[in-house]
Design a protein around this nucleic acid. Structure first.
Length: 662
RNA sequence: GCUGCUGUAGCUCAGUGGUAGAGCGCGUCAUUGGUAAUGACGAGGUCGGGAGUUCAAUCCUCCCCAGCAGCACCA
């Protein structure tokens, strides 16, 4: 007999081969119905999988939401695969996991049919519902590896055969059969039967391409993605969340609020409109105050440099596919012949600012007394990004980084990184972000010795500890293998108002570039030494950061960033003169204000400026004009307050200050 | 770059093998109205670009470009 310990501490003796489902049934019919899986010694398992030894057993029900969702999503993927193979014989199955909000399955469609399209989804959904309604048992079986590979090959499932052959270990593999002979190789666990899924809790959302095993060199598979939940309500809530996120889309709000636009003649580069550029200028001014205080000095470096310089820095060899290159000669103006000669010299638009900053450092002889030297640049970079990667402001081909390089001695690294952590902390909090910090450790392909990496990683660890940020509150985590090829890096991941995360800030120590560009300083000993170079950014790029801010604030910028901080709206034209007076005073107080004296009803004006997300609406009619007051309506509130003009001015003048000016 | 989808007025979208329509916006006129849409009239597009099929293409076919969703990429 086996001794099975339940969560309440009680022990049941059962015969070997008893399943968790049997035990649930023995406890009570309610539990038997609710139990969907089991945790056996902590491991999530099928409820129908026989117990073979003494174990601690906990039955899993829908109340264990994380487990229940994981099981359901995994099963949805399984049902999706079966449905597709029913409907489209000849389609090969490959791989289909659960995801954060659902599941997907990658298929290799038959050659004559080609990839799936959106039009196929309704039929597939219907077939999935049929399979769920059929309530087919999902039966786990162990199968000898060679047998399975032979079966897959016989069935023409070459991807599965490849996968099975390469799975590590030599123990038997597991497959899950669903009723009528269909099966997929899968570690499991699964629900006991397809009928455990809620047919109204999933939706196929898209088809797309995906490379086999995530490698561009491999075949392009056809991926069908769905979202899956435990019940209809959860699905509806999820769809609502997606709609809410879509409302914040910076591309949509950017157009509606007249902040910027993109067009195909300059795809990947932004046309900033006056209101959008106003936000940019606020951020720029804010950042300049911050870096001035922190002991940086601002520089400006060339947009175009000779290809030979990029060869020396290593970019020509490692990064050229992302660079825009320019012939260093007068283009051929004749109708005939090539635009440039075969032996043209080449220049390139800078994709990064770091080499230029080293070149500034190298001018003249630097002493240890000059260190740390912190050079900051609003550096406009161009990168020839793959077209499919471009996305609004988030991924562009021309962008401006808040980029700085700190040249310092080895013994200054920890303090410099610590100070940067403090600076970043203050800045992110000013924008209302929380964040987590990750340390990306040495990747497989890397330069430098193990000793150098040990040292570099420890320096960053020490600095984060010195800043007090290596705690769970700051999501402190180390990411093995994620570092740059020349250095480990610290990454700041912001969490926005609706819980999404964005990687923006970074600092990384670099001993490679100073070497390549032969940067040196004279030490106390009179000898030449290599400085270490810390690459760092807080916004990352102005473009992307503004994109993130638009979505974070849903377009309702805090007052100091709002392009238009107040609108004076008249009710009757008799108040026009007074409105002009109010406008003048607002502007004199440094408030970005406009007047709306159009011949429109006040309802119309309120609606329009509210939709335009103007933070303060100052309504003036005859009464206000006579009494020297305004009716202040603050965005997001229903009512209005009547204040004297002086009160409103002093109140707004106080509120429009940026957070670092308090 | 790869797979799929999309591309009609400033915006959102409808539509048809016989050279296009709505709402909003815009303009003009009337209206001076107290906190989320006053009314009337009017202007505005050759239907992403190129080629082909056809008597005839915005609509069908092909190529190109861009956008969108993923994948890959992201110093």
């Amino acid at each position: 007999m086996l001794k099975i310990t339940l969560p309440d501490g009680s022990v049941r003796e059962v015969a070997p081969g008893t399943t968790p489902a049997d035990i649930a049934a023995a406890i009570g019919p309610g539990l038997a119905k609710a139990a969907i899986a089991a945790r056996v010694d902590g491991e999530l398992r099928d409820i129908m999988r026989p117990l073979e030894q003494d174990a601690a057993l906990a039955l899993v029900t829908a109340k264990d939401e994380a487990d229940a969702l994981e099981l359901a999503r995994h099963d949805f993927a399984h049902v999706l695969a079966e449905a597709v193979q029913h409907l489209f014989p000849g389609t090969q199955i490959t791989f289909g996991p659960s995801t954060d909000d659902g599941f997907y399955y990658d298929f290799a469609p038959s050659a004559d049919r080609g990839p799936f399209t959106d039009d196929d989804l309704p039929a597939i959904e219907a077939e999935m519902r049929r399979i769920i309604a059929a309530d087919k048992p999902l039966i786990r079986k162990e199968i000898d590896r060679e047998t399975l590979i032979a079966q897959w090959q016989a069935a023409g499932e070459t991807f599965k055969a490849e996968w099975a052959a390469e799975l590590p270990g030599d123990e038997p593999l597991t497959v899950y059969h669903s009723g009528d002979g269909w099966y997929d190789m899968c570690r499991g666990p699964h629900l006991a039967s397809t009928g455990r899924l809620n047919p109204d809790a999933f939706k196929l959302t898209r088809v797309s391409g995906a490379y086999w095993r995530g490698d561009q060199k491999n075949a392009m598979l056809s991926r069908i993605t769905g979202t899956g939940w435990l019940n209809k309500k959860q699905l509806a809530e999820h769809l609502t969340r997606l709609e809410e996120a879509a409302k914040r889309d910076h591309r949509k709000l950017g157009a509606e609020m007249d902040l910027f636009h993109l067009q195909q003649e300059a795809h990947g580069s932004v046309f900033w409109h006056p209101k959008g550029y106003l936000i940019w200028r606020q951020l720029e001014a804010y950042m300049r105050r911050a870096i001035d205080d922190a002991g940086y000095r601002e520089v400006k470096t060339p947009q175009v440099m000779d290809a030979r310089q990029w060869e020396i820095s290593g970019h020509w060899g490692k990064y050229r596919e992302n660079m825009f290159v320019i012939p260093d000669e007068v283009p051929n103006v004749e109708d005939e012949g090539p635009l440039v000669s075969d032996d043209a010299d080449w220049m390139a638009l800078k994709p990064m600012n770091c080499p230029a900053h080293v070149l500034i450092f190298r001018q003249g002889i630097k002493s240890y007394r000059d260190l740390p030297m912190r050079l900051y640049e609003n550096g406009c970079c161009h990168r020839n990004e793959p077209h499919g990667a471009l996305h609004g402001l988030m991924r562009v081909r021309q962008f401006t980084q808040d980029d700085a390089h700190i040249f310092c001695r080895e013994d200054q690294i920890v303090e410099e990184v610590r100070a940067f952590c403090a600076l970043a902390d203050r800045i992110y909090k000013d924008f209302g972000f929380t964040y987590s910090i990750k340390l990306a450790l040495r990747p497989e392909k890397r330069f430098g010795s193990e000793e150098m990496w040990d040292k570099a990683e420890n320096e960053l660890r020490d600095a984060v500890a010195a800043a007090g940020l290596n705690t769970p509150d700051y999501g402190w985590e180390e990411l093995p293998g994620e570092g740059a090829f020349y250095a480990p890096k610290l990454e700041w991941h912001l969490t926005d108002a609706i819980g999404r995360t964005w990687q923006v800030g970074t600092i990384q120590s670099d001993r490679v570039l100073p070497e390549r560009l032969d940067a040196s300083y004279v030490g106390e000993d009179g000898a030449r030494h290599r400085p270490v170079m810390l690459h760092r950014a807080i916004f990352g790029s102005y473009e992307r950061f503004i994109g993130i801010l638009i979505e974070h604030y849903a377009g309702r910028f805090p007052l100091w960033l709002a392009p238009v901080q107040a609108v004076v709206a008249t009710i009757v034209s008799d108040a026009d003169d007074y409105a002009a007076e109010v406008l003048t005073k607002l502007r004199a107080a440094g408030i970005r204000a406009e007047a709306d004296i159009r011949n429109e009803k006040i309802n119309y004006k309120v609606r329009e400026h509210s939709l335009a997300k103007v933070p303060n609406l100052l309504v003036v009619g005859r009464r206000e004009a006579e009494e020297g007051k305004v009716a202040l309506r603050v965005l997001g509130s229903d009512g209005q307050t009547f204040l004297s003009l002086d009160e409103v001015i002093s109140r707004l003048a106080n509120e429009v200050r940026s957070p670092d000016m308090y």
